[in-house]
Design a protein around this nucleic acid. Structure first.
Lengths: 338, 338
DNA sequence: GGCATCCATGTTATCGTTACCAATCCAAGT
DNA sequence: ACTTGGATTGGTAACGATAACATGGATGCC
């Protein structure tokens, strides 16, 4: 039974059920007042007709889309994926849906993306990081919806914040490394002008070294983000060439740290005896690789979950001041360091 | 200047510019016929007013959303992320936006998700895999939009297909392993009833073994998906207990294969001398870990790119028969096997 | 000059749902 | 009996953009 007509609308379902379109509309909402039998009759008729609820019309009339817009730097990063998953799981219980976009670690792409997402009239928008173009800031401020910056603690937040200090997190690792006797410590990260969290981590590294009275010339730029395993391995190679006496290296992420570790294995350099390695992000690989990776747990899932709670509170009107949730990253000592 | 009024509409922009709303609408479209100076005046007025284009109204009136709905099993999987990224990159050039949802490897969740996505009236819908609930199949068939099943070659496709045979891909690895002398070969995968691609791979393994006149009792069930590194390591532990004389093991993915490899390292079992390991998916980790991982490249990005091409062709009316794009996975021999 | 053609712009009606208000019915209370 | 109130249902208009059609003016060609 091929059907080339237009798809059925609520009016069609109403006609078939013998009720008004308004009643059909109510039958499709969870909590609205329709008698049980009317609702069942409506839903049965809808199923028979193959009716599919049209959100586009609903969105326009009700001025609600139930979208939560989210921007992340990359869809291929397990940390951000964890955040989005936790966020999605929590808000979807309330019928909200994630509208996801990625910025490729570029604030200009972020600006474009934010503009595109705002056109869809989301209920709230979650961005990764606290650094944006002026226009992006303006778009977010004027959007009239909750704005949540994550994975960072911006000095001048646009709205709400759920994040942590990347610099302080790395400082904690430096403190530990120094306390167990490492002095010649290097840092492997991406180019300074792209990955802002990476840049913060590098800055935290340099500042912490300075506070210990140590120089920090051993900075290896691993190229533009994303800095993954291969980049980490290459950077480790560079480090061996340029600073062969390095005692420990802190990498901008577990992925690059693992790459660095494999480079050591390829060169027959023992970890941590000859050189210690620290990562960032507590990716699954760090816990399972041999030797396992000293790292920093930034609680990616928690960031997503707390962001979700915050959004729901704001939408419920339970929170009218900008919220600021500070995550406290955890240093995890494993086998790649003393 | 606090502004508590309603956000401006095209009518406001039109008034300010001294043109009709229709002209404003045209000024916001790329190719429509508006004089250069009118367009600039409109866009300037819009910027001054802080006007944000309202897609919800546009979507309803034009009956176009420019959404491409996509379902993947998990957002935390690099293979699927690669597919989505390639797809997204290609369709976004044409102004189409991905609306992403994940099914958690569960066909019932997939059904719910498909229904939810279809309500948003996407231009096309891309699903991962070729196994769905009857109702999901019906929803997809009746949606009146292009349906693309990926990462599989379903026998009875709903619409278009961009995929490969998971069974044949694994068979190729079995053939190679047998040809270089392995006989006691095991398979590590998820529980049979969830991950359908994993199940196909296991079936391909068993069939291939049989064709070589070999028994295949060494099947380790690693639990419900996602099967990641930890599950791979645990499964490898089980394999050593139950079948200590195993010569080679094929894992359902590179992640589990890497987990298995680390378990060998923890137990001091040399790879590939004592046991060979094969993975699936050609994840970055397989190329970089030591020893590097023999695997199968399923061309995840290509799947996304070809899916995008197919969608664009269909939307352009250049393709009216169901398309079937077959990817040919590649066996990549590396250090974890002879 | 006259007529066709094209470009830029305007007018009107509409996409499909739901907010808002009104109406009806039945049970309960006085 | 009559009011009150809650539950259920219906009627009407509106959300903000744009498809479809119409119009006016400039341009081109014979």
């Amino acid at each position: 039974m091929h059907n080339s007509r237009k798809p059925p609308t609520m009016a069609d379902v109403a006609r078939r059920t013998g009720v008004s379109p308004m009643t059909v509309s109510r039958a499709f909402k969870r909590d609205s007042s329709v008698s049980q039998e009317t609702r069942e009759a409506v839903l049965r008729a809808a199923e028979e007709l193959g009716y599919v609820f049209d959100s586009t019309a609903s969105n326009l009339r009700s001025q609600r889309t139930d979208f939560i817009a989210v921007t992340i730097p990359s869809i291929n990063n397990a940390n951000f994926a964890d955040t989005v998953r936790a966020l999605s799981d929590r808000v979807s219980e309330r019928g909200l849906q994630i509208l996801l976009g990625y910025t490729n670690y570029d604030v200009r792409e972020e600006e474009r993306l934010i503009e595109q997402l705002l056109r869809r009239k989301p209920e709230a928008i979650v961005v990764t990081g606290g650094k944006h173009t002026p226009r992006a800031r303006k778009l977010l401020s004027n959007a009239g919806i909750p704005v949540i910056e994550t994975w960072d603690l911006p000095e001048e937040p646009i709205g709400h914040v759920v994040g942590f200090s990347n610099a302080l997190a790395v400082r904690e690792m430096v403190d530990h490394f120094v306390s167990v006797g490492y002095r010649k410590i290097a840092f492997i990260g991406g180019d300074a002008d792209r990955d802002t969290r990476g840049t913060d981590r590098r800055a935290g590294f340099i500042a912490a070294m300075k506070d210990h009275g140590l120089e920090a010339p051993r900075l290896i730029a691993a190229g533009p983000p994303p800095i993954s395993m291969r980049e980490g391995a290459n950077a480790m190679g560079q480090l061996f060439e340029r600073f062969p006496d390095t005692e420990a290296v802190i990498c901008v992420s577990d992925l690059s740290a693992f790459g660095a570790l494999t480079e050591c294995q390829r060169r027959g350099i023992t970890v941590p005896d000859r050189i210690a390695i620290g990562g960032f992000g507590d990716y699954e690989i760090g816990a399972i690789c041999v030797p396992s990776l000293t790292t920093i747990n930034a609680f990616a899932s928690d960031i997503g979950a707390k962001t979700a709670e915050l959004i729901l509170d704001v939408l419920d009107g339970k929170l009218d001041r900008p919220g600021r949730v500070t995550i406290r990253p955890d240093l995890i000592l494993r086998q790649t360091s003393r």
